[in-house]
Design a protein around this nucleic acid. Structure first.
Lengths: 244, 244
DNA sequence: CTCAAAATTTGACCATCGTCAATTGATCCG
DNA sequence: CGGATCAATTGACGATGGTCAAATTTTGAG
């Protein structure tokens, strides 16, 4: 199951999306080869756990293909889906930096390939190439921004508007354009998970979806979502008390 | 208004709380002197703005004394108080790292002394002492954890429980113990700001406060809060549907 | 393909929250 | 001191969201 470096493409990290998008893009050819030799690439099936909250952090994970979900729970056993990770994203750097156990879990949402980089390898590369550290800094800083935006949205928007916003960002990632110019996508998440992302119960989300269909904002069929025009999702954020 | 290094204590950064608590604690004596010479210390009055969203990031700010509030708004003009900063905390590193304009504003909540460190100075120190970079990494990672915990709480708790949690953390910072063992504190925030921290309207917060008083959880008088025992706040998180 | 388990939807009902509006209380200048 | 302004509280009411329960659909194992 575990491949050493090579990967299915046969070119190791050289052909990996991480090479372009992730923080590793600052590595030179030699360093990339080193990374290539020492990472462990592994296939995950849908729903498979990548790592779990509470366990020690031995390294970081990089999404090569597929989608991963970051889950975090509180003391009462409630669980929340914090965010999704896509190819090029690096997971689990926090535990590594702080030397703490993982505070959240990650799982593959669909068939995915994910690389594991041992902390020793990260450390070596960080020493050889200080730019890598800067990349990580930038990455975390940008994650912070995202988290803060998330906090503000959660504090100010209604569940409906939060869901519309979630649909927008999912559409950006997963959306395709049909021949008639309308947009559609295959949702990577169950309703329960969608609900947990906006901090609502799944029953509430069902009703929100119903209302969106009534209002002609979007059409839902299983995990497929259709939107008339991508704009209509934007407009949907302020639909009430506009026409009276 | 602006002092160079020396500061009121006359010992520069040597006697500054940042020396113990902040990320700057890894600097040696020479580096600290350098920092001391090149930072600008400034007094702020209650309510004064430290920096505002949208303006360019020229450096970082360090709280030497007092309390600062981090405010962030969304497109609709809603404003949220994200968190408070205390002596030893460093503000505004994100804009610096990403080279972006400030995404949030900071203001002094009471009379405060806050030091400004120009980006050039930070850069120099980072080059001289790589440990400083690691400190910043740890700091951001820890801020991320806090933000994620915040997100989970907001998604799972009721406004009442969020407020109780907020009171707990404020009590940890601002609380004093009376002779009879009870705890009390002077709230550093207006009701409006307290409400914005839990994502509720101030009218709702008024009613939550009323309920907490009815239930004997806490007593509010202006900005002073009394709690019977510090435990009772903890117990308050799950008060309903326990006795029936 | 079939059946059981899980996910989703729907209904009924109640608690909470937001909004509007009016009142009271506090603060700040002049 | 007085008046103006802002903060905080309270009431009324409608909208939203949570809970419990049942019905329906989808999914997955065999």
């Amino acid at each position: 199951m575990v491949e050493q470096g090579g990967g299915a493409s046969g070119a190791g990290c050289m052909g990996c999306p991480l090479r372009q998008r992730g923080e590793w893009c600052v590595l030179n050819e030699e360093e990339t080869r080193f990374l290539s030799r020492h990472l462990k690439k592994r296939r995950y099936r849908a729903g498979e756990t990548i790592f779990s909250a509470g366990e020690p952090s031995h390294g970081v994970y990089c999404v090569a293909s597929g989608t991963a979900a970051i889950r975090k729970g509180d003391a009462e056993g409630n669980t929340v889906l914090l965010r999704l990770a896509y190819p090029g994203d690096t997971l689990g750097y926090r535990g590594l930096l702080l030397g703490e156990n993982r505070r959240y879990g990650a799982e593959a949402l669909g068939p995915s390939k994910i690389c594991f980089v041992d902390r020793a390898v990260v450390k070596l590369l960080l020493e050889r190439n200080p730019t890598l550290g800067q990349q990580f800094l930038r990455r975390i800083a940008s994650d912070m921004d995202e988290a803060h935006d998330h906090l503000v949205r959660n504090a100010t928007l209604s569940n409906r508007d939060k869901f519309v916003h979630l649909l927008q960002s999912l559409m950006n990632r997963h959306g395709r354009t049909a021949t008639d110019g309308s947009r559609f996508m295959e949702l990577p998440l169950s309703r329960r998970d969608l609900a947990s992302m906006i901090g609502a119960r799944h029953e509430t989300l069902s009703r929100i979806i119903g209302r969106l269909e009534e209002d002609g904002i979007a059409r839902f069929s299983g995990r497929t979502v259709y939107v008339a025009r991508s704009h209509s999702l934007f407009n949907a954020i302020r639909p009430p008390t506009l026409l009276d």
